[in-house]
Write a protein that binds this DNA or RNA. Structure first.
Length: 118
DNA sequence: CCCCTGACTAATA
DNA sequence: GTATTAGCCAGGG
């Protein structure tokens, strides 16, 4: 089954530790840049055995998913901090430094940071 | 086939 | 900064 959600799961599984991706970004990588909601749907219906780092998938504005997603934004925030994600004082993610860049992510890994861009 | 829901996003006020 | 509207896609009834 090569449905949209298969791609979503695969893409999400590629998110490196210390980085975060937006729903719309995942959708774009799957070929449907306007399917951000479908991505959220896929996450909600994601089988547990896939072990997807869905806590690394956040809203584009830097906010975290609703409470019912991970049992509380507080939980998700701690998980992300534990993985090296930087947060602002207001509790929002520092997208500027932690946003995953698929096209440069391999290079970024070599550099150790994700601020390198072409 | 039609209608509804949803872990989204962008634009607007 | 927040609230609201509208558009988008994939399932389920």
């Amino acid at each position: 089954m090569n449905s949209f959600r298969e791609k979503v799961y695969h893409t999400v599984s590629l998110i490196p530790r210390g980085k975060v991706a937006a729903y719309g970004q995942i959708a774009s990588l799957c070929g449907n840049p306007l399917a951000a909601r479908a991505v959220g749907w896929a996450m909600r219906n994601a089988p547990g055995f896939l072990d997807l780092p869905c806590h690394r998938v956040v809203n584009k504005n830097g906010s975290l998913a609703p409470d019912y997603a991970f049992g509380g934004e507080q939980i998700q925030r701690e998980m992300l901090i534990d993985e090296g994600i930087l947060f602002k004082d207001n509790g929002c993610i520092d997208m500027k430094s932690c946003l995953w860049i698929p096209e440069d992510f391999t290079v970024s890994e070599e550099q150790g940071q994700g601020l390198i861009k072409k």
